[in-house]
Computed example of a mutant assay.
Amino acid sequence: MTRIHLPGIVAMAAIVVASNILVQFLFGNWLTWGAFTYPLAFLVTDLMNRLYGAQAARRVVAVGFAVGVVCSLIGTQIMGEFGPLVTLRIAIGSGLAFLTAQLVDIAVFNRLREGSWWRAPLASTLVGSSLDTAIFFTIAFSGALTFLEPTNDVSWAGEAVPLLGLGPVAPLWVSLAVADLMVKLSLAILALIPFRVILRRLRPNLA
Rank of each mutant, 00 (worst) to 15 (best):
G80W: 11
R196F: 05
L99R: 01
F42V: 02
L6I: 15
A41K: 02
T2I: 14
G165S: 07
C71S: 05
E159C: 03
I106Q: 00
F195V: 04
W173V: 00
I74R: 07
Q24I: 08
A120V: 02
Q77E: 13
P84A: 04
A91T: 06
R50K: 15
L6F: 14
I15T: 07
V17E: 04
L145I: 10
S19V: 05
L190T: 10
V70L: 13
Q77H: 13
L51R: 12
V178M: 07
R89G: 03
A41C: 12
F98A: 10
G28H: 01
S124C: 11
L199T: 15
V161F: 04
I78Q: 10
R119S: 10
S155I: 06
G53H: 06
I21G: 01
M79Y: 13
L190I: 13
T146K: 11
R50W: 04
I15W: 01
V67T: 11
N49L: 00
I4Y: 13
R89Q: 07
A66P: 01
S94Q: 12
A191K: 02
V44M: 01
V67R: 02
S72V: 06
G115Q: 15
P150T: 11
L88A: 15
N205H: 15
G75L: 03
A97W: 00
A14E: 08
P194Q: 11
S72G: 14
A62K: 05
I4C: 11
Q102P: 06
F195H: 11
A188C: 05
R58D: 01
V44Q: 00
A101L: 01
A179Q: 03
A107H: 12
S72M: 08
G8F: 14
W117P: 08
I15F: 02
Q102N: 10
A14K: 03
F27E: 03
R89W: 09
P171A: 10
V108A: 04
P171Y: 09
L126E: 07
R58V: 02
L88M: 14
T138N: 09
L85G: 00
D180A: 09
W30E: 03
V44T: 07
I21A: 09
R111L: 15
F27N: 07
A160T: 04
L112M: 15
L112H: 14
V197W: 12
A120M: 05
D180S: 11
V174R: 04
F98W: 14
F36I: 08
L172K: 11
F36W: 10
S129Q: 07
L172F: 10
F109R: 02
V183D: 01
W117I: 14
I139K: 00
T100I: 12
Q77F: 10
A120W: 00
I4R: 14
T2L: 13
P84G: 04
L88R: 15
Q24Y: 05
G165D: 06
E159N: 07
G95E: 11
I4G: 09
I193T: 12
K184N: 05
N205M: 13
Q77K: 12
L202E: 10
L166E: 03
L122T: 05
G68V: 02
I9Y: 13
L22E: 08
S186L: 14
Y38A: 06
I189F: 12
L103N: 14
L43M: 09
G115K: 15
L181W: 12
D180M: 05
G93K: 03
R3A: 11
M182N: 01
W33E: 02
